[in-house]
Amino acid sequence: MSTLILLLATGLGLGGLYFLVASGLSLIYGLMGVLNFAHGSFLTLGAFVGLAAGNLVGAGTWGGLLLGLVVGALTGAAAATATELGLIRPLYDRHIEQVLVTVGLSLATVALFEGIWGPNPRNVTRTEWLASTTDVLGAHVPNTAFLNVLAAAAVLGGIVAFLRYTRYGLIIRAGVENRAMVTALGIDVRRAFTLVFAVGGAAAGLGGVLATQSLNYVSPHMGASLLIFAFIVTVIGGMGSLTGAAVASVVVAVLQQLANFYLNNTGDLIVVLLLALVLLVRPSGLMGRPA
């Protein structure tokens, strides 16, 4: 029983990380039709810069972590905004080329990060509380899981509120449905593009700093490995659906944890099988609109 609780809790924590990456991917794809391969780099950059900022205040302190999270999110947002304005916008509506550009950017930036910070993972210093566990009904749940879930819930709530209550949110929701009609109402939808990139980049940057706390290391490749699962989550949830991404994040991560423990470390394979199954039954994903 306590094992099951532990697996569910760590699964939820991992799901929170997946969601922080997948939410941006899903929004960007839903509005712009762009699959953003550089999203993992926003995460990695956010992690490195965020940690460096946190270390200025003090490694392993709450103040340092808080500053790290803020700086990580801002870094992710800045990198994403620059990418949208500099590389995506000039290729307006040429989706294949836009994807190719993000592919090139991801290859180039990962190499650059390796050059700057070295190819190998580096350990991080966590606060005492985050490095320890909490007893939940007999299970020793790592405290990072709580932090991840809390952050993911806050980001989900924030994005939902933004989409529901602001004019740009309205434009984004309408644009996901029918972008051409939004422009035909006299709205410059490109500003919304930059905005979803910024929001997605911020979530990824935040996720990057959080991931360093869960993994206990920071590495130039952490973005790429999380990105692949975020892609799977996005497809399973339905491309462009935020709720779909949230549900699929939890399902995928929990399933992964369960399979890793009970089925001989087969979590990653089970996730791919789940993806195949979802596609056979519902090609548009759990909550996606039929194409």
Partner: peptide
């Protein structure tokens, strides 16, 4: 916009 309310359609 099918997913938006009537009021939201008009506000947009």
């Amino acid at each position: 916009f099918a997913g938006l309310t009537v009021a939201e359609n008009l506000r947009l």
